[in-house]
């Protein structure tokens, strides 16, 4: 078993008053250890549902989710989550918010160690000096940075992100993409990132998975060959190689939405 995340033939339907609503249909996905997997797909196709299945928050009707060679049946401590809404606890300071997962995962860890670990991450995302502020005193981008720190403070194997940058302005978003790369360089983790932004998926992903419209299935997998080596830089997005990849993804999204892809390219 070389893949850290292995999703095999997952099918799921929600029970609604109007009968079952099929959301995922025989979805397959494999993410090797340390890889960053971006997932795109039409709105409402079942992306958030997928994250909840990977996190073990719910069980699929059919198929299996494997993490680290173990079948996922319930939530596990080795997972970190971040959402579009940074869900900061307003009654805690930023530092206390970041420490929260440690209180669950490592209750024996000393207060000083917890603080040290959290401060290390806050410094890494540029929030040094804000640790004693309340979430309401921070901007949306800063809250999202803190939320990322909280998602990885307990050194999870898998980081699951559901459109974490969706509500941010373009500049803040690009800043956070770079922060994301900086974090990965410092703390290796395997990541699943749900996004609506194709450039984001290419800039951050090692592979991009395109899901079909609801019920979602794996429609297309793009192996990202980002121009240049070493740390990815934003200028790379404006090279012909990236333009080609973005074009392919756009066509796939159109197919997923049930529209014709553009002809020549």
């Amino acid at each position: 078993m070389t893949n850290l995340i292995d999703i095999k033939g997952v099918t799921h339907a929600y029970k609604t008053p109007n009968g079952p609503l099929p959301v995922l249909n025989n979805l397959n996905m494999a993410v090797p250890e340390g890889e960053f997997c971006a997932v795109v797909g039409p709105s409402g196709c079942g992306k958030s549902t997928l994250t909840r299945l990977v996190a073990g928050l719910m069980k699929p009707d059919e198929g299996e989710v494997w993490l680290h060679g173990e079948l996922v049946k319930s939530p596990r401590k080795t997972v970190g989550m971040a959402f579009q809404n940074p869900v900061m606890l307003e009654w805690r300071t930023i530092l206390e918010n970041v420490i929260l997962p440690l209180e669950i995962v490592a209750p024996r860890m000393s207060k000083a160690d917890k603080t040290e670990r959290a401060m290390e991450l806050l410094a890494l995302v540029g929030l040094e000096g804000f640790e004693n502020k309340r979430p309401s005193e921070l901007s949306g981008g800063m809250r999202q940075r803190a939320s990322l720190c909280r998602a990885i403070v307990h050194k999870p194997d898998v980081l699951i992100m559901d459109e974490p940058f969706g509500a941010l302005d373009a500049f803040t978003r690009e800043d956070l993409w770079q922060t994301m790369h900086a974090l990965r360089a410092k703390e290796p983790f395997t990541a699943v990132l749900i996004t609506h932004d194709l450039r984001e998926s290419v800039y951050l992903g090692d592979q991009v998975i395109v899901l079909s419209g609801r019920p979602a299935t794996t429609q297309f997998v793009l192996d990202v060959q980002y121009p240049g080596d070493g740390l990815r830089d934003l200028d790379g997005l404006y090279t012909p190689e990236c333009a080609d990849m973005l074009h392919v993804l756009r066509d796939q999204i159109k197919i997923a939405q049930g529209r014709e892809p553009e002809e020549a390219h």
Partner: peptide
């Protein structure tokens, strides 16, 4: 909001813990 619950539930926290740390405050 379900996300509030999910931050702790995804770590396997018990209902009591979620109540004490999130829902109650």
């Amino acid at each position: 909001e379900p996300e509030y619950r999910d931050i702790l539930r995804s770590l396997g926290a018990s209902r009591i813990t979620i109540f004490r740390k999130i829902a109650l405050p």
